[in-house]
Write a protein that binds this DNA or RNA. Structure first.
Length: 466
DNA sequence: ATTAGGG
DNA sequence: CCCTAAT
C-alpha cells in the first residue's frame, strides 16, 4: 500500500530517514563515536604505563609473570574504557556504551585468542612447527627487523577489523606484543608465544604453506643461539627455554619430512575453530583473566573469523523480552569499527525473543513476504545480528511451527512434555493470517497485492494459486 | 547484493 | 544456522 510504495521508491534515503525517526539515538552516534574514540584513546595513554610494566620483560623475568601482568593490564584498560564511556552516557549514550562494550567484548575475544595461541604451543603439535617462523618471516617480509615493523604487522593480525582505530585493547595488544618481542631478542622462549600468536593470525591471512620449514628452522637455530647466551646468565629462564627448545627441535628432527606433508594440509576452518575453542577453555581454567565475566551470559565463544562474512556483532545477548525493548534500539548498530574481516556471530545462534518475532511478523505484514532486506533495515536496523536471511529463516520456521500447531493443538496440549511452544496465540494467529496471504515463496499469484488482509479462513491457509 | 531452497 | 544456486 502506501507504506509499501514508499519503501520502494525512496529506498535507502527513506531508510535513513526512518532510522532517524525510529531511533533518534542513531544520528547522535556518529558524533559521539569520535568522542568514544577519544575516550578510548585516553586509556591508551595509560597503557604506556602498562607498557612499562610489560617492558620490564627486558629484565628477563619469567614469562608467566608477564602473562599475568598482561591480563592485568587488559583488565585495567577495560575498566578505564568503561569508565570513560560512563561520562558520555548522559547524552543518550546508553546504547552507545553498550555498543562499545560490545566492541570491547569482541576485542576481549581477540586477546583471548592470543592466550589461546599461547596454549597452542603446548597443545597442538601440528601447529608447533611454524610457531617460530612468523617472527622470522616478518623480519624477512618487512625488511628491517625493527620493532616498529613487527609491531605493525602484529597489530594488523591481531585486529584485522580495526587496525587503524585507536582502541584500548588494540593498544594493549599492540604494545604488549611489541614489548614481548623486544625481550624476545634476549629471551628466546618468549618468542614462542609471540610467534605463536603471529602465526595464528598469519595462517589465517595467508594460506600458510610454502617456505615454512626453512624459515622455521633457521628461526629455531637462532633461538638456540640466543638460548645459549642466555643460559649463563639466567638459569631459571633457560630452564623454561630449553624445555621449549627441546620441543621444537624434536619436532623438526623427528618430523621434517613428515611435517612437511602434514603442513600441506591446511586445517579446516572448523578444525581451527574447534581447536582454538578448546585452547580457550583450557586457558580460561588456568588463567583468571576472563574479562568476559563482566558479561555473564556470553558463553565465551571466540571465533571471530567464523560466521557471516559481514559485520555481524555479538551483543550481550540473551535479552529477555523487556531487555530487548531497551536494547533493541541500541544493541547492534553499525559497527563503526571492525569494518573488514570482522565476522563474529559468535554462536551460530541467537535466540529469537517473542518481541522480535512479533516485530518480524508485523514487519512482514507491512512490507510483504520476501522483502527481507527492507524489513531488516526498517525494523531490525538496530540489531546487527539478524540478517535478512535470518529473518526469512525465522519466518519459515514460524510458518512451519504455526501450521504444525494448528494440526496438533490438542495433542500437544495433552502432552505437555513437548512444552516447547511459547508462542502466544495472538501471534500464532497473525502468523496464520499472513500465511494465508503469503503461502511463502512459491506463490505464483504474482499480481496479488496484499492490500487488505482478509483472514478469510484463519485456520486453514488459503493458497491462491493452484 | 538479494532471495529462494535445502541441509 | 549454514551453504549454494539463481537472479
Amino acid at each position: 500500500m502506501e507504506t509499501d510504495r514508499k519503501s520502494h521508491s525512496m529506498k535507502k534515503l527513506d531508510d535513513v530517514k526512518c532510522q532517524r525517526v525510529d531511533q533518534p539515538v542513531v544520528p547522535g552516534l556518529d558524533d559521539e563515536v569520535t568522542e568514544v574514540e577519544h575516550l578510548l584513546a585516553e586509556p591508551k595513554i595509560e597503557h604506556v604505563s602498562v607498557d612499562g610494566i610489560l617492558c620490564f620483560g627486558n629484565e628477563n623475568i619469567e614469562k608467566h609473570l608477564k602473562m599475568e601482568d598482561f591480563s592485568c593490564a587488559f583488565d585495567y584498560g577495560w575498566k578505564i574504557s568503561a569508565g570513560g564511556l560512563d561520562s558520555i552516557r548522559g547524552r543518550g549514550g546508553d546504547d552507545l556504551k553498550l555498543e562499545v562494550l560490545d566492541g570491547l567484548l569482541d576485542e576481549v575475544d581477540e586477546v583471548d585468542d592470543i592466550d589461546a595461541a599461547h596454549d597452542l604451543s603446548g597443545a597442538c603439535e601440528d601447529f608447533l612447527l611454524d610457531i617460530e617462523f612468523p617472527e622470522k618471516l616478518s623480519e624477512l617480509d618487512c625488511g628491517p627487523r625493527e620493532g616498529s615493523t613487527l609491531c605493525n604487522s602484529s597489530s594488523e593480525s591481531h585486529s584485522p577489523g580495526f587496525s587503524g582505530r585507536s582502541n584500548s585493547v588494540g593498544g594493549i595488544s599492540e604494545s604488549s606484543t611489541a614489548t614481548v618481542r623486544e625481550s624476545n631478542s634476549e629471551n628466546g622462549g618468549l618468542g614462542k608465544r609471540v610467534g605463536c600468536d603471529l602465526h595464528h593470525n598469519f595462517r589465517r591471512k595467508h594460506g600458510c604453506q610454502g617456505p615454512v620449514m626453512d624459515v622455521g628452522r633457521s628461526s629455531i637455530e637462532h633461538m638456540q643461539d640466543l638460548d645459549k647466551s642466555d643460559d649463563d646468565e639466567k638459569p631459571l629462564v633457560s630452564l623454561i627455554l630449553s624445555n621449549q627448545k627441546v620441543k621444537s627441535s624434536v619436532k623438526v628432527t623427528k618430523g621434517d619430512t613428515l611435517l612437511r606433508q602434514k603442513r600441506l594440509r591446511k586445517p579446516t576452518r572448523r578444525y581451527i575453530e574447534e581447536f582454538s575453542r578448546n585452547s580457550n577453555m583450557e586457558e580460561s581454567k588456568s588463567h583468571k583473566i576472563q574479562p568476559q565475566e563482566e558479561f555473564p551470559q556470553v558463553p565465551s565463544e571466540s571465533q571471530p573469523w567464523r560466521g557471516r562474512p559481514k559485520k555481524i556483532v555479538l551483543k550481550s545477548e540473551l535479552e529477555s523480552d523487556y531487555e530487548l525493548s531497551a536494547s533493541e534500539s541500541e544493541d547492534g548498530r553499525k559497527r563503526t569499527k571492525r569494518s573488514k574481516t570482522a565476522c563474529d556471530r559468535r554462536k551460530h545462534q541467537k535466540m529469537w525473543t517473542l518481541a522480535e518475532v512479533i516485530k518480524l511478523v508485523d514487519g512482514i505484514a507491512k512490507y510483504g513476504v520476501g522483502r527481507w532486506t527492507d524489513i531488516k533495515k526498517l525494523l531490525f536496523a538496530s540489531s546487527a545480528y539478524r540478517t535478512p536471511v535470518d529473518l526469512r529463516d525465522k519466518w519459515r520456521n514460524l510458518l512451519r511451527s504455526s501450521s504444525a500447531q494448528e494440526n496438533n493443538r490438542r495433542e500437544v496440549e495433552t502432552h505437555p512434555k513437548h512444552a516447547v511452544r511459547p508462542l502466544p496465540k495472538p501471534v500464532v494467529r497473525r502468523i496464520c493470517e499472513l500465511a494465508a496471504i503469503h503461502p511463502y515463496p512459491k506463490v505464483s499469484s504474482v499480481n496479488y497485492v496484499p492490500s487488505s488482509e482478509q483472514p478469510t479462513t484463519k485456520g486453514t491457509p488459503v493458497y491462491y494459486s493452484a
